[in-house]
């Protein structure tokens, strides 16, 4: 196992190098730089002179060819410095990420927990009641939800709960003046603001997961060992939970590992609609501003999380399936 992990880590590091190198090349190939992007919004009278621009270019290392600049970035990153965001007034990238991460995590972790809490019982229930009218209705409904794009659902939910009923706020994470709230008021306010985004985040994956569990369960309950369990007199509940579901866990943990990067990447469109100050928006804004350092910092983070997630999935796979060992 140890040597397997070491080998995987080594391959992972190589992959990281390749990803960051390619992404760096790609973003540098986009027209414009962090300096020109900023300039377009400025008052023409306050435009920098050619000399001043050139000075700043040298200052930020933008005069070097991209492959040289990449290695400068790489060197800084290896020494623990993710760089500074030029369009964000030289704010360190690490600080930017740290500011935005909690908002995204609040949505994604809540949504993940809800997904698992709801989809497992739902999937098990629908696999054991696969002929009933209630199950067929639920499955059809979930399937329809699965095909409904979340941004459409978001707009309808806003229309219903804000415009028509006025129960929930339209967007944002806090109400105005939240700095003066007591802890309880603050929590209540945050809860009200999160409900719609959490619903939009959750329903799609809920539909996907419960269908996934149902499909896998139906596969497992046809196996010979389920018949063996019944033949020794195991009660139906235990057959489903102990004998069948334990086998369904095997594909489920693989899926779990793959959700890890999604926890921090946020959802660009949903965050945009709900004006949610999360990572998705940060990424989107950074690309628009040619904010090289922030784009690279975020890319690096997502890549690391993706690779870690896959490794985690493989390790968990060996934990739940005794047939799998790594050498």
């Amino acid at each position: 196992m140890t040597s397997y992990l070491l080998r995987r880590t080594a391959i992972g590091l190589l992959t990281l190098l390749l990803i960051t190198f390619l992404i760096y090349g790609l973003i540098r190939a986009m027209p414009g730089t962090p300096l020109t992007g900023d300039m377009a919004n400025l008052d023409p009278s306050k435009q920098l002179s050619e000399e001043a621009l050139e000075r700043r270019r040298v200052q930020y290392g933008l005069d070097k060819p991209w492959y040289q600049a990449y290695f400068v970035w790489l060197g800084n990153t290896l020494s623990g410095d993710l760089g500074k965001s030029i369009p964000q007034n030289d704010k360190p990238v690490a600080t930017l990420i740290a500011e935005r991460a909690p908002a995204t995590l609040l949505l994604s972790v809540t949504s993940l927990i809800l997904t698992y809490l709801l989809s497992i019982p739902l999937g098990l229930w629908s696999s054991t009641h696969s002929d009933s009218v209630a199950e067929r209705t639920t499955s059809t409904l979930l399937y329809m939800l699965y095909s409904l794009p979340s941004f459409v659902a978001a707009l309808y939910l806003q229309l219903l709960f804000y415009v028509k009923l006025d129960w929930l706020p339209l967007y944002g994470m806090h109400s105005d003046g939240y700095e003066q709230f007591t802890a309880a008021e603050y929590a209540w306010d945050l809860l009200k603001h999160s409900i719609l985004p959490v619903i939009c985040f959750t329903y799609g994956s809920l539909a996907y997961y419960s269908r996934f569990i149902r499909a896998n369960m139906q596969e497992v309950v046809r196996q010979d060992f389920i018949r063996t369990a019944k033949a020794k007199g195991v009660p139906p509940g235990r057959v489903v939970w102990h004998h069948a579901f334990r086998n369904t866990l095997i594909p489920l943990v693989t899926l779990m590992g793959l959700t890890l990067p999604g926890l921090l990447s946020g959802a660009v469109i949903l965050e945009q609609i709900f004006v949610w100050p999360g990572m998705g928006r940060l990424y989107f804004e950074a690309i628009g501003q040619r904010d090289y350092e922030t784009i690279m910092g975020l890319t690096l983070m997502f890549s690391v999380l993706t690779l870690l997630g896959q490794l985690l999935a493989d390790v968990l796979y060996a934990v739940v399936d005794p047939r799998v060992t790594y050498h």
């Binding site: 196996q223 010979d224 060992f225 018949r227 063996t228 369990a229 004998h243 334990r246 086998n247 095997i250 739940v320 399936d321 005794p322 047939r323």
Partner: peptide
Amino acid sequence: FQEPMTSLNPVF
């Protein structure tokens, strides 16, 4: 049963 290979639960 006929198939000893598949008649036992693989995870226990």
